[in-house]
Nucleic acid binder design. Structure first.
Lengths: 136, 136
DNA sequence: TTTGGTGCAAAGGCTTTGCAGAAAG
DNA sequence: CTTTCTGCAAAGCCTTTGCACCAAA
C-alpha cells in the first residue's frame, strides 16, 4: 500500500507496460488480460489488476475513471481529455487543453481546496454513428 | 428496460424522490437506503436501486458517475459541476458554467459525434483540510 | 539470500434480478 | 382486473486478497 517498496521489473510487469503503451484503446483490466494471454498464456488476471494498480500509483500509467462500470487504463500520461461512446463504451482521446483556468474559476465558488479537474466528453464513435444510420 | 411503461407513483418512489431532493449530499444508493429506512423501515435496497435507476432514466433525477466505486444521485437536474473530496469521497456542487464552447472545441478534434460533456473537480473538502492541518 | 511478485482460487463490494405476493390505476 | 412494483434472497460482475511457491536483485 505504501510506496516505500522498490519495484521489480518482472516479465509480467514489463509485458503489461509494453502492451498498454502499444494500444490507444484505453483497455479495461480484462481487455488487457485477454491481450496479454496471447503473449503470456499463464499470466493471471490478479497479476494484471495488481500491476495496473501499482503502475498507476507510481504515475507510470494512468487509471481512468470515465463513465461505465469498469476502470480503464491509459499508457499516455500527458494531460488530455477523453470521449466515451455512449453506445459501445469505447473511449478515445481528445487533445483539448481547456485554456480557461477552470480550477481558479471553480476555486472562487467553493470551500473545497481544488487540486485538479477532469473534463470528459460523451458521444457516438464513428462505428456507432454508422450503425445508427443503418437502423434509421 | 424500455421507457414505454407508465410509472406509478408508489409510496416508495415518492419517498425516495422527496428524500433525494431534500439533501444536497449526492448520496450513493446505500446512503439513500440508510436515510430512507428511518421513514420507511421495510423498504428494500433493491427497491432503492430500481427506483433511482428508473427516475434517472426518466430524467427526473441525475445519476452521477464521479470518481470512486459507487454511483451517486442528485435531485438537482440543472447543469452544474461537481467537486469530489479525494480524502473522504464527499461530493459537492460547483456552479461553473464553462463559458467556452467546449463541445464545439472538442468536436473539431475528433470523429466522435459529441453529445455532452462532464466537468469534475477533485480536491479537499473543508473537513479534510482541517484534519490535514491537525496532522501536519 | 532476501523480499517482492506470481498464479490460483476464494472472498468482497456494489448492483442487478427472479419470484411470489402486494398495490396502483 | 391488469400491470407495475415491492421485499427478499440469490446471483452477477468486477476487483481484491490470502497463500504457498517463484524469481528478481
Amino acid at each position: 500500500m505504501e510506496a516505500k517498496n522498490k519495484l521489480r521489473m518482472t516479465k509480467q510487469r514489463q509485458v503489461i507496460l509494453e502492451e498498454l503503451r502499444m494500444v490507444k484503446t484505453h483497455p479495461t483490466a480484462d481487455d488487457m488480460y485477454q491481450m496479454l494471454r496471447k503473449r503470456m498464456p499463464k499470466i493471471s488476471l490478479g497479476t494484471v489488476y495488481r500491476n495496473l494498480e501499482i503502475l498507476s500509483e507510481s504515475g507510470i500509467i494512468q487509471k481512468l475513471d470515465v463513465g461505465g462500470t469498469q476502470k480503464r487504463f491509459d499508457g499516455d500520461t500527458t494531460i488530455h481529455s477523453h470521449v466515451r461512446c455512449v453506445a459501445c463504451g469505447r473511449v478515445g482521446d481528445i487533445d483539448v487543453k481547456p485554456n480557461c483556468n477552470l480550477e481558479a474559476e471553480a476555486q472562487k465558488m467553493t470551500d473545497y481546496e481544488i487540486i485538479r479537474h477532469r473534463l470528459e466528453f460523451a458521444g457516438l464513435c464513428p462505428l456507432c454513428q454508422q450503425k445508427r444510420k443503418a437502423t434509421a
